[in-house]
Design a protein around this nucleic acid. Structure first.
Length: 571
DNA sequence: GCCGTTTTCGGCCCGACTGTTTTCAGTCG
């Protein structure tokens, strides 16, 4: 079993115990252990063989025994017994926003609901409003929650799909001994969510490529399998389509399957004006075929420079390409530091030193430590006394580094009324102040916009964190009026964050582009809650590229001294 | 269920918000 699978099972048990009504700390203990196992950075099986399970924080005698059984036999009697008490379907009800353990139990015991569909049916029949503690509004809210749930299950976050695709690409490259294997479709365009995974292979014998694909160990089920294409379902439930063609047509096929559909339509129209027709097999001029082994060939024949996949949304990229005005897109290597990270001083796993070392390992010149503030009690937010203790430790660490420094920051709560969670004189002590909304997410548009704007007008606030508050596939953005926020950002010089966490990617591509138009400065941050969490930066960079961002638009491409200078400009 | 220079038992997860409440329960971060 992988660390992830073990962690998922422990979380599932945590959920079951909560529904059962066990003391909450038991569930929390399971979840804490799950988090630590996932953040382990090494194979739990190896640790188990070494007898080191107890070294994992949050694993005591009881969990050690259970993990021992689980890793040794692949089964867990305790879990099997729990399943007899709490059907797994009841746990699935927790995926509905606003349905927690109590409501899930109620729905199960009173209505026999063991699936989201059961709940939906009962809600439509008006049965939920009759249950104790629920009313018409709860019934309505649960229905809306289910609707948003259905919207989500159809798409996969980029951050979940990309590692899977990368693994498949590498497996195929090594099995076939070739390089020309690539993810295509919305995945290659780095859209924030993708519908499925599409792969492309150029191979002399396409049928051998599809055969190698369907034989991969990740494949659970072969849905269809022909000489040039195959569709499979992986063990993790994702669907993957593969197309294979002879290398002489690879460029045309790559271009075609990367899309977007709208981009391709525009491209074909351009081809027609030049007396050509363009398809997935290449160009035709009358009966004469023009093959495109490389993707650049497709664009070159149309008189265009190659257009990066992230721009291919028919949002003006063809015109820009014709005018020689394509942006020189930001690259991951341009990023010199990360302006948003958490440590075990608040709700994260790693120490200051571990985070600093991980950041240095990524080649960064600086890392901002921005733990939560006191108002976010659940995250163990820092009060002023602890903030100052942390400051002392950071200053001590900085004496040991060369060519790298930790900057002192905080992710400060924007309270319900737009005031901040630290007084100004404390904010003033910090190198970087990120202001974020975590509570009161349902405020109406006027209230929440005024609240955020008030925070941005504080001269000590450098960055507005995850501006829309969306959680991909789970929670819509808040009602905040992003247009107004962007205007105020331009006016006040507040930097807007592109939060790179795969379930956030917030700002999104569209608002990034708008921000750039308005002259709003941006930064891209991992919001890391573990050392490994720093590595999500690539998704933020990809999202910024989709928003036409160049390095000059992103403040954390600056060397540290220029950055520090920039950060004082509001004060 | 974990953990311990305050404790081997008793803390640990607090506060805002919402809806259903007329004093509170459930959810969320």
């Amino acid at each position: 079993m992988t660390n992830r699978q073990v962690a998922d099972l422990l979380r599932l048990i945590g959920d079951m115990l909560e529904i059962k009504g066990e003391v909450i700390y038991k569930s929390l203990a399971y979840r804490r252990a799950a988090d630590n196992i996932e953040a382990l950075g090494r194979d739990i099986n190896e640790l188990w063989r070494e007898g080191g399970l107890r070294d994992i924080p949050g694993v005591g005698a009881a969990l050690e025994n259970k993990l021992d059984e689980l890793l040794g036999t692949g089964r867990l009697g305790y879990y099997d017994k729990l399943q007899e008490e709490i059907p797994i379907g009841v746990v699935s009800l927790l995926s509905i926003p606003d349905v927690g353990p109590k409501t899930a139990k109620l729905l199960w015991e009173e209505l026999g609901a063991v699936s989201v569909a059961d709940v939906e049916r009962a809600a439509r029949e008006g049965k939920l409003r009759e249950l104790p503690g629920l009313g018409v509004r709860s019934e309505q809210r649960i229905l809306e929650g289910i609707a948003s749930l259905y919207r989500r299950t159809t798409r996969i976050p980029l951050g979940a799909a990309w590692p899977v695709a990368r693994e498949l690409v590498q497996a195929l490259r090594s099995r076939l001994g070739i390089q020309m294997v690539e993810p295509v479709g919305s995945l290659r365009r780095m859209k924030d969510t993708v519908g499925d995974i599409d792969l492309l292979v150029a191979y002399e014998e396409p049928e051998q490529a599809t055969a190698a694909f369907t034989a991969l160990p990740q494949v659970a089920e072969v849905v269809s399998h022909g000489p040039t294409r195959a569709t499979v379902i992986l063990h993790n439930g994702l669907q993957v389509d593969l197309r294979a063609l002879h290398p002489e047509r690879y460029g045309a096929l790559l271009q075609y399957f990367t899309g977007s559909k709208d981009h391709n339509v525009a491209l074909r129209a351009l081809a027609q004006r030049k007396g050509l027709s363009l398809s997935e097999y290449g160009f035709k001029r009358g009966e004469e075929e023009v093959l495109c082994p490389r993707e650049e060939d497709v664009y070159r024949i149309l008189g265009l420079p190659w257009i990066p996949p992230e721009l291919r949304e028919d949002r003006g990229e063809l015109r820009a390409a014709q005018q020689g005005a394509l942006p020189e897109l930001l690259q991951l290597a341009d990023i010199r530091g990360d302006l948003h990270s958490h440590t075990n001083w608040s709700d994260a796993a790693a120490t200051l030193l571990e985070m600093a070392q991980a950041a240095q390992g990524l080649g960064y010149e600086y890392l901002v430590i921005s733990d939560h503030t006191q108002g976010l009690g659940i995250a163990n937010g820092l009060d002023v006394a602890r903030l100052r203790q942390q400051r002392a430790e950071i200053e001590g660490l900085n004496k040991r580094f060369s060519g790298f420094r930790l900057l002192r920051g905080a992710e400060v709560e924007i309270r319900g009324d737009g005031t901040l969670d630290y007084p100004d004189e404390v904010l003033q002590e910090l190198d970087v102040v990120i202001a974020s909304v975590h509570v009161g997410l349902r405020q109406d548009k006027e209230t929440i916009t005024a609240r955020v704007v008030r925070a941005m007008r504080n001269p000590h606030v450098d960055i507005l964190g995850h501006p829309s508050g969306r959680l991909l596939g789970y929670r819509e953005a808040t009602n905040v009026d992003l247009d107004s926020v962007l205007q105020v950002a331009a006016e006040t010089g507040t930097i807007l964050e592109v939060n790179a966490m795969p379930n956030r990617l917030d700002l999104d591509d569209v608002h990034i582009r708008r921000a750039i138009e308005l002259g709003v400065a941006l930064c891209i941050n991992s919001d890391a809650h573990s050392t490994g969490g720093l590595e999500v930066m690539e998704y933020g960079v990809a999202t910024a590229r989709r928003g036409w961002a160049e390095a000059r638009h992103i403040v954390n491409t600056l060397p540290v001294e220029q950055l520090r200078k920039l950060l004082t400009r509001k004060e």
